Amino acid sequence: MKAIQYKDYGSSVVIELVEVSIPSIQSENDVLIQVKAAGVNPIDMKIRMGFMKETRPVEMPFIPGGEAAGIIVAVGAGVSKFKIGDEVIALTRKNAYAQYVTANENFVLLKPKSLSFEEAASIIVTLGTAQSVLFTEGKLEKGQKVLIQGGAGAVGGAMVQMAKAAGAYVIATASGNGVALAKSLGADEVIDYKLQDVTNIAKDVDLVADTAGGDTQRKLFQILKPGGKLLSIATPPSQELAGQYSVNAYFVASDISSKTLQNGIELIETGKFQTIVSKIFKLEEAAVAQDFLTAGGVNGKVILLVE
């Protein structure tokens, strides 16, 4: 089969298209999926650049890709939830940049019928991360005020929609075309962070969901009410500032499973969630796709089409 491999750590020049054997089912609870589309995520580049050597060590050569949409072509002896021919989405953690990949059935869901494979490959990490930040850790409730930093990105856009569906008052930050996109997704207010200072506009926020990190994160402490939460999926927040402003602030590692995806899937099936695919590349264009995402300013998800 065709697959993308990192031959070593480094820039996108280490990415190559190779021919490797189709993986075989190793566990009785695994399924084998013929991949139709795979999502491109920031962690793919972090692994490639060697930033995850301590927390996510990998052996080179390495096939990246943590989420896939496709068709089940084989099942393990213990699989009870799926059958051959089912169209599914799967969290794989690795090996999704390929024509075939295995996944544990507990991290597989039937693909929503309304979505194409490309759209379906865009929702796994985004829905699971949004659920983890907003509800599992953030405990967001109806009527509360939430600010989503980066509300036009793949994860941020999911957060806007899921927070709005839960009855929260949603403020999003975005720039350029992202301002209109975040508004169309349901944000009550959209702050153009390149033209406006968020600290002059947002006040008494219950929850800040930070997808950007960096220096901009430090300003977000000022807009929280005492006892509020700043949760980041980008960089660990300053505990010194958390103490100074009497808020809770910490990094959130997403818990992505069939359970955490269920809320988002229900929103999709009832027409209350819009998938956002920014651009689709062919599998052999994986290096270009990763560089496109790394360049920043991407509104929505980057997808690899696997043929």
Rank of each mutant, 00 (worst) to 15 (best):
Y6G: 13
V108T: 03
K301T: 05
K279L: 13
A158S: 15
T294M: 15
A202I: 04
M159F: 02
N248G: 14
A168K: 05
E87Q: 08
T173S: 09
G10W: 02
D197E: 11
F273Q: 08
R48W: 13
P42C: 06
K94R: 09
G296D: 00
L207A: 07
E19A: 10
A121F: 06
K279R: 15
L115A: 11
V190F: 02
I43G: 07
A74Y: 01
T275K: 11
A120M: 08
L220H: 06
K203W: 03
G78I: 14
Q239W: 14
Q144R: 06
L109Y: 05
S257A: 10
K36S: 10
G214S: 11
K94H: 11
V160H: 15
M162C: 07
K142E: 12
T270S: 14
G66H: 08
S258R: 13
A152S: 08
G176F: 07
L241S: 09
D210T: 03
K53W: 12
E266L: 12
S238P: 09
Q161V: 12
I89L: 14
I63G: 04
E54G: 11
M159V: 12
Q222A: 13
N248A: 06
G167L: 03
S80Q: 07
N29Q: 07
G150Y: 04
Q99N: 00
V18G: 07
N177Q: 13
G214E: 00
S278G: 12
T136C: 14
V155G: 14
A287H: 11
E137T: 08
S116D: 04
K142V: 05
Y193Q: 11
V108F: 11
Q99A: 03
Q274Y: 00
E28Q: 15
D255R: 06
L267G: 05
P61I: 02
E59I: 13
V190G: 04
P23V: 00
V18C: 10
E307F: 06
Q222I: 06
E16M: 01
F273A: 10
